[in-house]
């Protein structure tokens, strides 16, 4: 904290500040400042990320039930067990189906919202805020609202009330997996929570498109609407779209809260993190198998990310 006290005077010149300040001794050295500012983060990263990753890798080769300091080495047994476990492999399928739907759906919805809001002549700020607001809601809170009031199975649940007006029987949205209505609950929940945030990203990108491009297109005879959107807006949004898709894929990988809260005690609708939670931290407390599953999942994510980078070309430098 004290390093900042003398900065007030030197501030205007700080952009080209001299690398060494002899009168301040050690405090002025850039190496010291580097460690001063990065070490809290690095310490946190080591303690809360790298150590657990290493520990997990170590645990995955041991029989570690009800303990994180196991002694019985079992080699690749845990990996073998997890790969044979239909619940774990099933969770990978669940995730793939989920991601294959939620990523394009959120992308399209948030882009659509951004286009609509961008066109507004008045109350733009109001609608921007309204669509963004759900982002501030927690997944757990939203999941409870969805479960207990909107998609409750009793006759006075919101959806069942509406369906009742049309003479449709009450539906058990979450308890009955056949037909899989639970996907409707999960997908609407996630769309509601996520779309506003990505809408803001798209809005920013839309406002960055130079108007001259549209003028030039109009002069060249491009019709407003689909043609302009297809050939001007969409290509101009490429960098943002790529980033949004990446963020959406990451968010899908992290899916946990709403699945965990909406679908208790099921054998379906469990993405890998939920499945691993039940294996390692839930009732069975099998840290060995849980860690093995986590390592398998990490390898899969690594492969997918590499492949994705190859196709989307993100981070190649020619982007944007």
């Amino acid at each position: 904290m004290s390093t900042t006290t003398t900065r007030g005077v030197a501030r205007p010149a700080s952009a080209k500040a001299s690398p060494a300040r002899p009168r301040r001794g050690l405090r002025g050295s850039s190496t010291f400042n580097f460690w001063l500012f990065t070490s809290p983060f690095l310490i946190g990263l080591t303690v809360f990320v790298y150590v657990p990753i290493g520990w997990s890798l170590w645990l995955s080769f041991f029989e570690a039930r009800f303990t994180v300091t196991p002694s019985k080495f079992v080699g690749f047994d845990n990996y073998w067990q997890m790969l044979q476990d239909s619940k774990f492999t099933g969770s990978l399928v669940t995730f793939t189906v989920f991601a294959a739907f939620i990523v394009p759906a959120t992308w399209a919805l948030s882009l659509g919202l951004a286009l609509l809001v961008n066109r507004l002549r008045f109350m733009k700020a109001f609608f921007r805020s309204v669509f963004f607001l759900p982002t501030a809601c927690s997944y757990v809170a939203a999941a409870l609202v969805w479960k207990m009031s909107m998609f409750s199975g009793v006759r006075f649940g919101l959806m069942n009330t509406i369906l009742g007006w049309f003479g449709v029987e009450n539906i058990a949205w979450l308890a009955n997996p056949d037909p899989p209505w639970y996907w409707l609950v999960i997908v609407t929940l996630r769309l509601w929570l996520q779309a506003g945030f990505y809408m803001i990203l798209f809005l920013a990108a839309l406002q960055n498109i130079p108007p001259e491009l549209y003028e030039a297109a109009a002069i060249d005879g491009a019709k407003p609407g689909w043609q302009t959107f297809r050939h001007i807006t969409l290509p101009q949004l490429r960098a943002t779209s790529t980033a949004v898709i990446l963020l959406l894929v990451i968010a899908a990988y992290q899916a946990f809260d709403e699945f965990f809260n909406l679908l208790a005690k099921t054998t379906w609708g469990r993405p890998p993190l939920v499945e691993l939670y039940y294996t390692a931290l839930g009732e069975s407390q099998d840290y060995g198998e849980g860690s093995a599953g986590a390592v398998i999942l990490t390898l899969l994510i690594l492969i997918v990310t590499l492949v994705q980078g190859k196709f989307l070309g993100f981070g190649r430098g020619d982007d944007k």
Binding site: M148, F151, S152, G153, V154, G157, E169, A172
Partner: peptide, 8 residues
């Protein structure tokens, strides 16, 4: 369809 399901 005679069971109460998804009760609060």
């Amino acid at each position: 369809g005679h069971l109460l399901l998804d009760a609060p």
